[in-house]
Design a protein around this nucleic acid. Structure first.
Lengths: 321, 321
DNA sequence: CAATTAAGTCGAAACGATACGAGTAGTGGG
DNA sequence: CCCACTACTCGTATCGTTTCGACTTAATTG
């Protein structure tokens, strides 16, 4: 069957252990090195990662678990995480659990059975139950995008509430009072925080009105519908603040379709780096999450934890463009 | 350390082999089953796939390799593939290679080192070099979305050329003659095919004009810019046909922004299931790829091949809505 | 040149699961 | 009540590495 270390040993007349040493970068005699390298080439040896992982309990792989694969936020971060970890010699295994708690836990088990050396997770809920198994097995866990009730893991989030307050205040500063919010289900940590920031600002200005808040379900068509509703129900709405990428796209389409001009008939602030923003500048603003940075920091914190560092909580800053 | 089969054996008073049997679905005595299940829950046992793979030479994992994670087409298919394979007891490992040939090959090696039982790939090029290593190792390969020059693998594609021709013909039938096309880089198989279909129809009608074709780079902002250009350069353009989801979104924004009404001032056909389509119906049409079906068929063909079936070439049909 | 030290090499025991032939309960018929 | 037969269950070898203490070289030194 497959070529093993034993075949190399037989071929070279050396012991298994010596071959293994060579393969792991431990120095061997010059003439042995040559013999081994020749044998490897001749027999076409490839290391069996299973045997190795079984023995070492390490896989060189990090598990990445997210609720949905279908949004720009997740995929951008994943791409960056992969890039960084790859540079450090790690590969990643990605799972999405479709925002399903049961599947989430199942996925954690799947990843653990693959012997991942660490777990980066964007949890469905704020409960630590999802990744408890991993923590219990002493596997480093980095949680991104959401705070949870666990102290054993690192958290990497952005200043959702503040930045949303600030974005709302900026709109208020322009003299707008009727400012609508398109947000996600407030069960979700980020949606809740962003709504809270908006509410902070609106209440302070004494213009908060629950009916100005619509749930856009975090999707393009949800953002589209929510915006349509807003425009219909509040004809004199002066501004709209949308709190994620997909809904922003949907919202723009709806506004345009209704014949209103962003920056002229209506103020608009979206979320995440909408590539087409440049074409709207300065008419449209966006709250820009440092997606790449989130990915990079997650990867860094992960490798630090693998090397024994303690969990850390990091808050990154979004900016308004 | 980690909980092993031996711990379960000690806990239950049974032999390793019996536990293993249970874990592999071989029937055990009712009262033993209960004991085992309790022990698993109590100790938090998770099977060590590495030990298992070492022994069985199988991993229960399929590798999925795509050029980009950042488009709806890929992510929808991946989600479906995962769903189907999960139901058959397989997990998936996803890699994206950022449309980089070098990374692509590297990723194939990575996946092989993870001992995947099969490889589902959306290759960057039409050359079989990318997955040659896998084929050589006798690992089943399913190629989706693109045809390659390999006979050792299964191909699952849609009728790109025909459906694009048909979509174009439908627009022509409405009396339009100046029909612009927003496409991707024609190095890409699907972009090439779709452009070819458009060209077929336009030439047949005697109205083909190279300057009506714009490259939208497959992205939202690319589609936006390309459409802006079209509207500026061909003021009397009568219709626009866009050939992927992201560009469709960008294009719609651009058209709206220029104050033209889809279905009234301009005919519009997009690509892929744009969720907000319903709001435009019947003003806007879309070429609908059976994304879920692609994923499902890919998963089916993969498991068939693992069980020894020969490679197959399957062409699925897109529809115009 | 003997003694010491450093540098490589060795053999065998794990790692945690599965496979296989052999053994032991449980079941039903005579 | 026993025998044959089915249906589990058992012990152990094995997969391909790494690990570890012991051992053998080679190099260094007084």
């Amino acid at each position: 069957m497959a070529v093993t270390i034993k075949d190399l040993a037989r071929e070279t007349g050396l012991a298994n252990a010596t071959i293994s040493a060579y393969l792991n970068g431990i120095p061997v005699r010059e003439y042995n090195r040559i013999k081994i390298e020749e044998a490897i080439k001749k027999l076409g040896y490839i290391r069996n990662d299973y045997a190795r992982g079984l023995k070492t309990h390490r896989s060189g792989t990090i598990g990445v678990l997210i609720p949905e694969l279908s949004n720009v936020f997740s995929t951008t971060i994943i791409t960056e995480i992969e890039e960084c970890l790859r540079n450090k010699g790690y590969g990643i295994i990605v799972c999405d659990c479709r925002t399903d708690l049961h599947r989430e836990e199942e996925s954690v088990r799947f990843l653990l059975s693959k012997m991942v050396d660490g777990l980066i997770i964007m949890p469905v809920s704020t409960d630590k139950k999802a990744f408890a198994v991993a923590v219990q097995k002493n596997i480093p866990v980095v949680v991104i995008d959401r705070k949870t009730n666990s102290e054993d893991v690192s958290h990497i989030v952005i200043n959702n509430r503040e930045i949303s307050r600030e974005a709302t205040e900026r709109i208020l500063a322009k003299g707008c009072r009727k400012i609508a919010l398109v947000t996600g289900d407030t069960e979700v940590y980020t949606a809740k925080e962003r709504k809270a920031g908006y509410e902070d600002a609106m209440r302070k200005a004494g213009v908060y009105d629950e009916s100005f808040v619509k749930n856009g379900g975090l999707s393009v068509d949800g953002g589209y519908s929510a915006t349509k509703e807003i425009l219909a129900e509040i004809p004199d709405v002066q501004a709209i603040f949308v709190t994620n990428y997909e809904m922003t796209i949907g919202s723009i389409i709806a506004i345009n379709e209704e014949g209103r001009k962003i920056g002229k008939d209506i103020e608009f602030t979206g979320f995440d780096k909408v590539e087409i923003t440049s074409a709207f500048v300065p008419a449209m603003h966006t709250v820009n999450q440092p997606l790449e940075e989130i990915g990079r920091v997650a990867a860094d914190v992960m490798t630090e934890m693998i090397e024994g560092a303690c969990p850390r909580d990091i808050v990154l800053k979004a900016e308004i463009l």
